[in-house]
Structures are given as structure tokens and as C-alpha cells.
Design a binder for these strands. Sequence first.
DNA 1: ACGGGTTTATGAACCGGTTCAGCGACTTCC
DNA 2: GGAAGTCGCTGAACCGGTTCATAAACCCGT
Lengths: 341, 341
Amino acid sequence: MRRPTIADIARRAGVSQAAVSFALNGRPGVSAATRDRILAAADALGWQPNTAARSLSAAAAGAVGLAVARPARTLGVEPFFMQLISGIQGELSERGYALLLDLVEDVHAEASVHRRWWAERRVDGVLLVDLRTGDPRPRVLREIGMPAVLAGGPDPTGAVPGVWVDDARAMTAVVEHLHGLGHEHLAHVSGPPGMAHSAHRAEAFTAAAGPRAARAATDFSDAEGAVATRGLLRRRPRPTAVVYDNDVMAVAGLSAARQAGLAVPGDLSVVAWEDSALCRLTHPTLTALSRDPFRFGAAAAARLLDLVRRGPGGGGAGDTEFELPELVVRESTAPPRPNGG
Amino acid sequence: MRRPTIADIARRAGVSQAAVSFALNGRPGVSAATRDRILAAADALGWQPNTAARSLSAAAAGAVGLAVARPARTLGVEPFFMQLISGIQGELSERGYALLLDLVEDVHAEASVHRRWWAERRVDGVLLVDLRTGDPRPRVLREIGMPAVLAGGPDPTGAVPGVWVDDARAMTAVVEHLHGLGHEHLAHVSGPPGMAHSAHRAEAFTAAAGPRAARAATDFSDAEGAVATRGLLRRRPRPTAVVYDNDVMAVAGLSAARQAGLAVPGDLSVVAWEDSALCRLTHPTLTALSRDPFRFGAAAAARLLDLVRRGPGGGGAGDTEFELPELVVRESTAPPRPNGG
DNA sequence: ACGGGTTTATGAACCGGTTCAGCGACTTCC
DNA sequence: GGAAGTCGCTGAACCGGTTCATAAACCCGT
């Protein structure tokens, strides 16, 4: 019960291996009648291409990689990633590509995974997430010449094309919403300043809310989100609204505020950057900035496959803008109490 | 700037390709001196094996697959999965294996992904999660003869070896803890009865808490967790403690209880089956059953690689028990109020 | 000095596809 | 009717490793 190969098909259909290959790949060189006979034989034998053999001659792996450099602890809690992966997956499997996943320590480890994958010809390209300031990855990728797309770009060095969201405009919209409700003392709990998108948002926040608005940086974890919240709430004037850079920290901030004896949204309005089930789990439910990570992942994957198929030097190095996230207003934002602050 | 191949190494070291292959794989047939020369040449050229070529002759893919049939929505919220994957990943990359991930609709789609992966020789084996009652996957896997390990077994059909946790014993421990606190009216919010481990736990709950204890089944989502909670709280006598089959539902239940005007743990004690950051995010923090998904994943992956290396018919079909989860008591469980119920 | 055994190295086949030069047979055109 | 072109198909090389039969070189004891 050996796996059938094209040789078996050729024998059964009474043709050469080359003819079988042509027929199976829908290229000219065989008559319609012969093609049908070959396809019927392949079908009867239950033939499937051996990826290794195909990769070897085609010099393409039929797979793309995603290495993620975040502690599994944080990764797991953020629904964002799974949805992103799910979106990527959908796009890939539709075109017969597989997804290789690797969870690593940091961006340097990620860069070496990329190197290895490329050297071993395990993947045809990679997706990048979480660009850091001074990130080594774009440089490495350009050096080895592997196709790559940055989900969450744009890459300031321009080495890697990106699918990106206009965080600055989104942040402005959030701040305007809070201003519109009458809030004057805003605060922002950001992720690590080393992450490019985090830094962007922080800048945009300051630009929109004014240089005296309160800010705190964290590692995106619930723990630091809570600590940052406590710190901000001790300030005078006390902020009446906080924007959190992810959903997990917003939930943690909610708990922290409650423990400090503050009502949400009465004493404090809360906005989460990423929308997810988490934001609907809490009481009150959280106002959140909602983008569709599923479609975002799909867009990035599509862009990558495009790049892969174009081959090296195929142009199309530009960035693609993804739709602006939408602010979903729920229970956690309201006008500040007149006696608050 | 072509990628170096063993032919290049052979030329540089002045030996045959076969000698290079022997040297690089640490097998006998070359002298120590020649071996060193070859390794130096390989190093100088920056050689890495081409996985496709290696797979083709070795008839091994150097990768294992994980197809998950759960909606991305639920998957994302449960930290469990990412940690599990992270654990799997750690074990795999240590031994040079890659992980293929696929998110699919249901177990039937999963079975066809398995079929395709195996036919294409993309993977050497797969990991299974979420065994269903009457699950088609063990049958298919046995039919095609692909190595597989069930994370969360055991498989009642015995077709697939599993790494499993004694849920029944764990459930008994939880119920005893609640009994010990003085609770008499317990309830259990389980996952879908179609999931084997969920069914197991439900049975164990009934065995330990008595046939009249309240039970509700859900799809593991926060939404159904909340609905189930509201239903249980309308019962008379009202349960004073609820055991949730995952962390997400426990959090949702917490909100539902609060909205119903009940204090936790004063009026209602809450236990979550899976421990995660989520359980520490809430207020009060949740008492939870904690197993280490990271090490659990690692154990399952190790078992699979073992099976893969043993080759077909290599025996070792037995199940492996993983350590019993530990009950981490936090703020959400306390003795019932004497005037409660 | 010689037979037997071990160590070291080689050439060539092989894994399962893809691809291309080449070759009949058949059509087309003048 | 013969040159030119097209169509359908084949044989063989090729991708980059692994492996095995075989041979050359070396070691040993007698």
C-alpha cells in the first residue's frame, strides 16, 4: 500500500511521467482526451502531490512562517492574536499554503528563526508583527532577500512592505470622543515604548490631548496595566478618562479603579484599544476601538502571497492601508461627573 | 550567491558528497580529520540543509501538525491554547521540528486536513485536542496510519495514545473543597456534552455532588456562560457555589451574578476550571483549578516525537497520565452566608 | 610476506516531482 | 508536393540531499 506517485499514474494511463505532470498542473502539452484519462487515473489512485518533491524542484516551500516574540503569557490572554492567525490561516489554506508558527523569546531569536527557515527553504516568506524601534528584523530580511510583510507597519526603514492601520487618526478620534463627552483630564496607558505602534499611539495621544495629559508605559500585561492605573489615579488633577493600549489592560484598569473606590463610568471613563469578547465580559462593558483582526490577518497574508508569487524584485514594495478602526461605544464611557476630579 | 549545497562543501573539502553527508550527520564512514575539514567547510559556506531535499529522501517532513476545530472567537479568549501551543513549540524546536497550525471549522474538516497533510507528506504526525464523543479523527488517523497523540485523552476507542489529566479526580477535589466550606447546593456549568472531557467532568461532578446538583451545558463561550448562570441562579434552592468548565465562563458568570445583585463570594462562590491571567484580572480574583498548559503541551509533543521516531508499529500505544491540576484558592470561594440560599 | 578484517572513502542509485530539448505526425500555405 | 509550423508526447536531466554496494587503504597476527 505504497503512496501513489506520478509514475503509478503514468503507468495506469499509459503515458509518460512528463505528460502526467503537465496534465496535473493544467499546462499545455497534452490533449484534452489524454488529460482526462490522466486525471481519472490520478483520482482513482487517490494521488496527492508529495510536497517535499514538489518543493525540491519548484524551489518553493508552499508555506509561510509567523514567528512571534511575545511571552506566551501575554499572547494567550489577548484574543487579538488568535483572530489574526485565524485570518491569516483562512487566506493561506485557500491557496494551498501552510502556516508555520514559532513562538520565540525576542526579536533577535525571531530573526534567527527567519534565517533558518529561509536557509532550510521551509517557507517562502514570513509575516511580521510588533515592529520595535530599531528592529533588527527588516534589515535581516532584506539581507537574506526573503519576502515578508509587516502586519501593523509601516516600516520606517522601508525595507519591508506593510499592511497598516492609521493609529494616529484612530487615537485622535478616541480623544475627540472623550473631549466631546466633556472630559478635560485624559490619560493614556501605553505598551512598551520600544514597540513602534505603541510609540506612535503615545505620540498621537499627546498631540491630540495636549502635552500635559498623563501617560504611563507598560509591557501590555494586566499586572502593569493595574499598576499604571493606580499611579494615574493618584495624580492631581485626577484623570477622568483613561485610554488603554489593549483590552487586557483595560480590564485590569477597571478592577484597579473599582478597588480605588471609583465608579466606572461615573468617576472614570475607560476605553480599550482592541475590541474582543473580553470587552463584553466585564461589567460595565467596555467602550473599545474595534478593528477586525481576522480580516487584518487575511489582508496581510494576501499581500505576502502576492509578493511571493511575484518573485524577487517583483516590485510592489509599497504599504497598504487597512481600514480605520471603529470606536464602539459601550457602557464604560460617559460624561464626567460635575463634582468629579 | 546561490545557496551552498553539499556539493559545494564536497568540492571545497576535496571529498565526495557521500562523505559530506556522513560527516554532517555524525555517522561513521569518515575519519575524524576529514570530518573536521568537512564541518569547517560547511561552516565557512554557511550551509544549512534544504528541508525539501532531506524530506524527500528521508521520507520525513520534520514537522508536526496541529489542526484546531474551534471558532477563532472562543479560541482567542482562552489563554489555554496559546500556552499549550507555546509548550508544544518549545519541545518541537528543541528537536528541530516545525509546527504547522491550521484553524478549521469542525472535526470533519480537521480530519481532511490530516488526510491532506499526510498524503502530501507535510507532517510526520499530528496532535489532537478536544476529543468529541463519536469523534471521527481517531478512526481516520488509524486508517491512514499517521502517528498522533491526543492532548487531553484518553481515547476510549484506544486508536490514539493520549496524554491526559484525571479530570474526575480533580472534579472530586473541587467538590470536596466546596463541601468543606459548607456549601450544600452546588452547580456545574459545563462545555458541550459532545466534548469528551466535558462529559467526563459533568459525570464526575454528578458523582461527587449528588444527582440533584444543578447542571447546565454551554458551548464554552462567555455568552452561554452568562445565560447558564442566570438560569442556575433562578433555581430553588439557589446554588451557593458554581464550578465553571473554563476561565472565560467563570468571568462571565461573575458579571452575571453581580448583575443579579449577588455578592461573590458572599452569596455565591465561583470556581474556574482553567487558571490564567484572566482569573487574576477580575475582582474578586477567581479560585481556579490550575494545570500548566505549557508543560502539558510539551509533554504531548514529546510523546508524539517519540512515536514518530519509533516509526510505525513501534509500540508504545499506551496513555500517559499528566499531573493532577492543583486547586488555587483565591477570593471567589468562601463559606456560604448562613442566611443565604 | 600474506590472508583476513576493519576503517575510510567513493560512485551511483534513489526519493517524487518539474522542465526542456527533441521528435514524429499532422496541418497549413504557396 | 515540399517547406514551415504546430501539436502531442517522450526521455532524460535536474532539484539537494541520503544510502548502499563496492573498492582502496590500512592494520593486525602469524
